[in-house]
Amino acid sequence: MEKRVVFRSWWLPYVLVAPQLAITIVFFFWPAGQAVWQSLLAQDPFGISVEFVGLENFANLVADEHYLASFQVTAVFSLLVAGVGMSVSLLLAVFADRAIRGAGLYKTLIIWPYAVAPVVAAILWLFLFNPTLGVVAHWMRALGMTWDPLLDSGDALALIVIAATWKQVSYNFLFFLAGLQSIPKSLIEAAAIDGAGPGRRFWTIVFPLLSPTTFFLLVVNIIHAFFDTFAIVDAATGGGPGQATEILVYKVYKDGFKALDLGGSAAQSVILMAIVIALTVVQFRYIERKVQY
């Protein structure tokens, strides 16, 4: 899409894009370049000696079982957040779409958690699940369940999944609801006349028609779980116990700022960038497909 050329000036457009370009270059391209360059260097923590080591940092990472474990944690974490979050949201959206009375009210009551900062979400759930004073932890004990996210890695993972999911439900809900409302009512009515009950209609008509939304949300949720959850992990578990909840983004931070392994951290940054770019490309392929509809 192009406009007919309307305005002409040899300098004005450059002035107009300058602020954005300046910020982009200083805070995006320069650091990203630095990350790539750093990832090829080995530096001791005191910055005394720097040595070009080629791909050694990457080789070290691939051989590092902690890093591979972090990958695995991230994968499990993302899939759980995406899976649980989307299922709950879809359920709520389907019912909200059904509810004729109060639909607007439900929408308002469901979307607000989007506004809550991830770190606050983490603290809220940390408090509920705190083994000594948490209300929910108390109920679980009363039911005879053992629960200690400070010691048990499964419990810790569950805690951050719950916090991350809770925050993402409203987002998924909005998109599912919009998707449901865009399905023509006549299709549902035709299926009903064909004799399909509500459940059957959902699985054979509604769910397939929602698939573009579902796919889009899947990608967005995975990106969310990968990157937007740093605060949740930092506040809720600090990556622990051990490295049980150390997702990739958290490890970049910890290795870079706490362990001062600059080359290793930079190499991780580069790998993360590659992942984001891959996910973005997938997302854009999806958009292209959507445009064709």
Partner: peptide, 25 residues
């Protein structure tokens, strides 16, 4: 070219380039 320069930043959330960005700042 400028358009694509801006576009690419979509793919670089602050989280993936924390250390170098910190250094620049």
């Amino acid at each position: 070219f400028f358009f694509w320069m801006i576009f690419v930043t979509l793919m670089l959330p602050v989280e993936v380039r924390i250390l170098p960005t910190y250094k620049v700042v």
